[in-house]
Design a protein around this nucleic acid. Structure first.
Length: 297
DNA sequence: CTCCGCCCTAGTG
DNA sequence: CACTAGGGCGGA
């Protein structure tokens, strides 16, 4: 894969933005890593070419070079050092989680693409979701005439999925999630007006959608609507909360009430950016279970 | 409100 | 073959 003719340097150290951690931590799925450690990422509207180093990174975007798009995507307005100080004050033991993955950030993505991605996340793993989304983009994604990302496709939007039948999606490997996607694509959802509603309304509206329960709704809120206090409770975070914060919740079965109690407990301790804190717990647990994905410091 | 079987598929023990 | 992976749904 060729390099962009014009690439730009951003002096942002990996401790402030850890690109590989952001891309590999199960927030976004349409990206590739080259042998030389560069990343090509596709959103619904642009491509990004990224070459991370310890003291900064080279970047280019397509169709035009737009720093403001990357700045927004990586939520660079959020002061991570400030969050670390706040979290450590709230829970001194949280230091270990920060130290394991400094520079990890929550991505600001499009609500439509996060809805598609996270409806697919149920009973699933990151690698397989990536395969599913990649095949979906290959089927109906817009092709890009981008010199440094040959035959790369954009992430399809929800309305584009009306081009596919449930059977088409099953053949692409979506399994029982195929039906949800077909239903969702026909609803004519208006995400712009939804985004203007209070957070609780957004959550309730999302949970009325087929294939969207509490966990998936909170993922869409956190990654797609910028709700920084949305706390998706998965098995990893549940183990963390019940072992370190609220042992009494361990015995309860995972009903919707238990889910809310777990999320509220974590939010109560970690504060307004508890969704970000949750990502550190998730990355830490996943890292100790699998291959390293966060850079040692 | 809670419990339970089921839904697709790929990978593991 | 049984079981699990970052759930959700519908019925009892």
């Amino acid at each position: 894969m060729p390099r962009p003719d014009r690439r730009h340097w951003a002096s942002i150290p990996s401790s402030v933005l850890n690109i590989e951690a952001c891309l590999t931590s199960g927030q976004t799925f349409l990206w590739n890593r080259t042998e030389s450690g560069r990343y090509i990422l596709a959103t619904e509207s642009f491509l990004a070419w990224l070459e991370p180093h310890d003291d900064g990174f080279w970047w280019a975007t397509w169709p035009t070079d737009r720093w403001d798009m990357l700045e927004r995507f990586f939520a660079l307005d959020v002061d991570l050092a400030g969050l670390y100080a706040d979290w450590t004050e709230r829970d001194p033991g949280f230091n270990a989680y920060i130290a394991a993955c400094p520079g990890l950030r929550i991505l600001r993505q499009n609500p439509e693409t996060t809805l598609i991605d996270f409806v697919c996340s149920s009973c699933n793993n990151v690698e397989r979701i990536q395969g599913m989304i990649r095949r979906l983009a290959g089927a109906v994604g817009t092709e890009c005439a981008c010199p440094w990302a040959d035959s790369q496709r954009l992430h399809p939007r929800l309305t584009t999925l009306t081009l596919l039948s449930e059977d088409d999606l099953r053949k692409l490997g979506f399994g029982y999630r195929a039906r949800y996607l077909v239903q969702l694509s026909r609803l004519g959802l208006d995400f712009t007006s939804l985004a203007g509603l209070p957070r609780a309304k957004v959550r309730a509206s999302l949970m009325r959608l087929p294939g969207v329960g509490p966990k998936v709704a909170d993922c869409i809120r956190l990654f797609g609507f910028g709700h920084d206090d949305a706390v998706p409770v998965d098995t990893h975070l549940r183990r963390y909360i019940t072992s370190r914060l609220v042992p009494s919740l361990a015995a309860r079965s995972m009903t919707s009430r238990t889910y809310e109690s777990l999320a509220d407990a974590f939010r109560g301790i970690m504060g307004p950016y508890s969704g970000w804190a949750q990502q550190y717990v998730y990355a830490f647990q996943r890292r100790t279970l699998r291959s390293p994905q966060c850079k040692e410091r």
